[in-house]
Design a protein around this nucleic acid. Structure first.
Lengths: 120, 120
DNA sequence: GTGGTATTCAACCAGCGGGTTGACAACCCG
DNA sequence: CGGGTTGTCAACCCGCTGGTTGAATACCAC
């Protein structure tokens, strides 16, 4: 599970981390600020941030003792591309499937019409 | 980690499972067909499918002994909504930041202009 | 019914993830 | 210097994950 996309998805598979990301879209924050709403230790939050950092979702700088956390929004593009690619592919396929079903329906109606002696 | 979105992200955090999803956008497939390219046991693939199923990414029907696997593309929407929501939020914030930086730049230029005795 | 095929279930194992606590590091302020 | 604040590192625990093998289920074909 060493590839980038896997790390990103894994990082966002945790509700606490998703909430941190959500809050970081509003403004940069220190570890302590981020930790405040959660009922876990600062160390646990620090670990979460490490996961987000290794996934490329955030970066950390330094301001005296503080380590302000900053969201790197470009990573969203990576996920969006993956999702949209396969969504589009799936949708195209469903359209083909719909076409097939429509054909079958037409054929059935033709059969019915034939059996009932009605002009198609 | 019981919520829907967490399960979806976690399911896609595995390259094998992402590959399965990718292949399922092309066509439905049986467990055996899905397993064929990977160097793991059928049972392992069956487990992966269970994960995808519990995340709502696929459904399984029955055709004699076979259990054809079908991709449920609607889940993509769930992820897209989450991602796009925060991406948009982050982008708006960056625009505000840009505006602030632009203001600072203007102020600086004003200062410079003032120091240099040039009209602003 | 017997045999073959497709798939899941069960038990097990190693490794990782998320949590804890305690110690340490880096920095500011008197 | 010493004390306070912010954050990380290290060791540990426990539950989950992804893999294995072996047995069981469900179905078809003969």
């Amino acid at each position: 599970m060493t590839d980038r996309l896997s790390r990103v998805f894994a990082a966002l598979a945790d509700p606490t981390r998703r909430d941190m990301v959500a809050r970081l879209t509003e403004r940069d924050a220190t570890v302590g600020e981020l930790a405040e709403p959660y009922a876990v230790s600062i160390q646990a939050v620090s670990k979460h941030l490490k996961v987000l950092e290794e996934a490329g979702l955030v970066t950390r700088s330094r301001d005296a003792q503080r380590r302000p956390v900053h969201l790197e929004a470009e990573v969203f593009d990576l996920m969006s591309r993956w999702i949209e690619r396969y969504r589009r592919q799936a949708e195209e396929r469903f359209q083909r499937l719909d076409a097939v079903l429509a054909d079958l329906q037409d054929a059935h109606e033709d059969d019915t019409a034939a059996r009932e002696g009605t002009a198609s």
